[in-house]
């Protein structure tokens, strides 16, 4: 993980806006980050902070209307995704970048068999025969821990449990050895016991296949600690802090990150006590404050926070933070 590594995915100043009943909702407003080769990159934040929209923007899967990517650039292996014609974009989707969604219950088409939906993607990108694709699909199911894969291919999604569906989704996403796997809260909708299984599976699959990078979206910092190398913290459509995982946990810079960490249950504390949550609520996306988005809930808030939005600046090598506390003027 040296600085020389060329980023696999480079997102710069991404802006994705939605039109909600005539008003503009800036769901993602100037997001920049890099994902390197062979890296697990975490994106954390409360629900509604724009994580999913960021991920969907990378695949250009923003529903239009009401949404639109209004600015920024996304480079994937040197190619500018936002400038690609749709036909070229489709060749990347599912093939070089694939995605796993939060809701395994609805993400699969209920009227087609698992096999149909797996084979469809394989054949689309490889152009192989139906039989070959079927063999490959069955193999993938076995690989993700669905035994008797060949027989299960003819099952419908509703015959699978939630965890199994998510496994099938992973099989689908990894069947073509993509360079980047985007996992949008892959475990949120699952039982706690299944959650770690699925996470382990994802990491395991990464080594079994060609070592894809993973963009792991979650609202759970514990998951990040277990799996990621670097992490970005999002709030109000903006990235507030980017850091390697260990420094972030040891010394969070942004008050929001500090708040998130405080709300984590600690294994060393023995008894489960009531989680301290960050007081206040996420501001409505239509009525964002003009200054710092987190100012309303920030324990460190001072006058400048309401007036002026801080910049995301590199405060240590490889460490970025968007907070007035960490610029030259500081609290003055």
């Amino acid at each position: 993980m040296t600085e020389k590594q060329k980023p696999l995915l480079q997102v710069r100043d991404l802006r994705t806006y939605f039109n909600v009943e005539g008003q503009t909702a800036k769901a993602v407003d100037g997001v920049s980050f890099d994902i390197r080769e062979n890296e697990v990159f975490g994106l954390v934040g409360e629900s509604g902070s724009g994580k999913s929209v960021t991920a969907l923007s990378v695949l250009r899967l923003i529903p239009n209307p009401p949404g639109d990517i209004v600015g920024g650039a996304i480079h994937f292996r040197g190619e500018s995704l936002l400038d690609l014609p749709w036909a070229e974009m489709r060749k990347i989707r599912g093939n070089r970048i694939s995605m796993i969604f939060q809701e395994p219950m609805t993400a699969l088409n209920p009227v087609f068999t698992i096999g149909f939906q797996l084979i469809e993607g394989i054949r689309l990108h490889t152009g192989c025969s139906k039989d070959e694709a079927e063999v490959k699909a069955a193999e993938m199911l076995d690989l993700v821990g669905i035994p008797d894969g060949l027989r299960r291919l003819s099952d419908y999604p509703h015959q699978f449990s939630g965890g199994m569906r998510q496994r099938a989704m992973i099989a689908m996403a990894l069947s073509l050895t993509p360079n980047l796997l985007i996992a949008d809260e892959p475990t949120t909708a699952l039982d706690v016991t299944i959650q770690s299984q699925i996470l382990e599976l994802m990491l395991e699959m990464r080594t079994k296949t060609d070592g894809a990078s993973i963009l792991l979206i979650t609202h759970d910092l514990a998951v990040v600690a277990e799996t990621c190398q670097r992490v970005a913290v999002m709030y109000g459509g903006k990235i507030q802090e980017i850091s390697e995982v260990i420094p972030l946990f040891e010394d969070p810079k942004h008050p929001y990150t500090q708040g998130l960490l405080k709300s984590l249950p600690r294994p060393d504390q023995g008894k489960v006590r009531r989680l301290p949550t960050i007081p206040g609520i996420v501001p409505s996306i239509l009525h964002m404050p003009p200054g710092c988005k987190f100012a309303d809930r920030c324990p460190e808030r001072f006058e400048r926070c309401d007036r002026e939005e801080p910049e995301l600046r590199e405060i240590e090598p490889g460490r970025f933070c968007r907070c007035h506390l960490h610029d030259e003027e500081g609290r003055s």
Binding site: R60, L61, P63, N64, P65, G67, W86
Partner: peptide, 10 residues
């Protein structure tokens, strides 16, 4: 009560 949109994906 139930506005329908055709959110086009491509």
């Amino acid at each position: 009560f139930d506005p329908k949109v055709f959110s086009r994906l491509r």
